[in-house]
């Protein structure tokens, strides 16, 4: 199933349910798919909600994993510290034993030993970043459908030419929702031409009728 969504006043799509969930869709995002009479909240579409749920479970698991990882790291660090401490203690004991047996030891020797840095035994594990989210690419806004104009020109200019304008306005929108921008633009232009024709005919008819009525009266 292919879905379209409204993101920041713009339509985007088509997406699969999984892609939608990756775009950071919320249950309140308006969603539409072919065959649906109107936009609806994502919460009303079972497939999307299922994906969303799966994702939140996966996220919770990932979080759990992170916590576990941190705990293991901490443990390992503590162990390493402990080992280090023990090693240092051993070294000191050895040193002392040596000093006692030799009685005299150059100071530099001792300093050198103290400065020895024990490399920590662990390497912090690089956490894999959460799966890169696919940003929704808001497509171009819908070409003007001239809905108000087509209705005004049909009902007020009193010309039958306004009806195709309404039909093309409707086709502009549905072509756009289906992702066919080129077709949508063409219909938008056609709607525009029919509206212009309708208004011109309406405007022309007034003086024309006055003239005709004047002739026959």
């Amino acid at each position: 199933m292919k879905y379209w969504i409204i993101v920041e006043d713009r339509h985007a799509g088509p997406f699969s349910a999984q892609q939608l969930v990756d775009t950071g869709l919320t249950p309140d995002t308006l969603v539409w798919y072919e065959g649906l009479p109107d936009w609806t909240r994502a919460a009303n579409i079972p497939e999307i909600m299922q994906c969303l749920e799966q994702r939140s479970i996966a996220e919770a698991q990932a979080r759990q994993e992170l916590v576990e990882q941190a705990r293991r790291d901490e443990e390992r660090r503590l162990q390493a510290e402990e080992a280090e401490r023990r090693a240092a203690m051993l070294q000191q004991q050895e040193e002392e034993a040596r000093r006692q047996t030799l009685a005299v030891e150059p100071m530099a020797e001792e300093n050198r030993h103290e400065e020895t840095v024990v490399q920590p035994a662990y390497q912090p594990v690089q956490q894999a970043a959460p799966s890169a989210s696919v940003a929704a690419q808001p497509t171009e806004p819908c070409p003007p459908a001239y809905i108000a104009w087509s209705i005004i020109s049909t009902l007020l200019c009193c010309t039958i030419v306004g009806i195709p304008a309404i039909i093309f306005a409707s086709m502009t929108k549905s072509a756009y929702y289906k992702g066919d921008l080129a077709k949508s633009k063409r219909y938008s232009e056609l709607a525009q031409w029919f509206i212009i024709a309708s208004i011109v005919l309406g405007a022309v008819s007034w003086p024309f009728q006055i003239a005709v009525m004047g002739m026959f009266q």
């Binding site: 049909t154 009902l155 007020l156 200019c157 009193c158 010309t159 039958i160 306004g162 009806i163 005919l201 309406g202 008819s205 007034w206 024309f208 009728q209 006055i210 005709v212």
Partner: peptide, 25 residues
Amino acid sequence: GIMPRCLFKWATGWDCPGCGSQRAL
């Protein structure tokens, strides 16, 4: 008296969707 009449009605004798719209408004 001189509200614009419908060209469509004048030509065909049929009512168009907008006929009567001015009276209605």
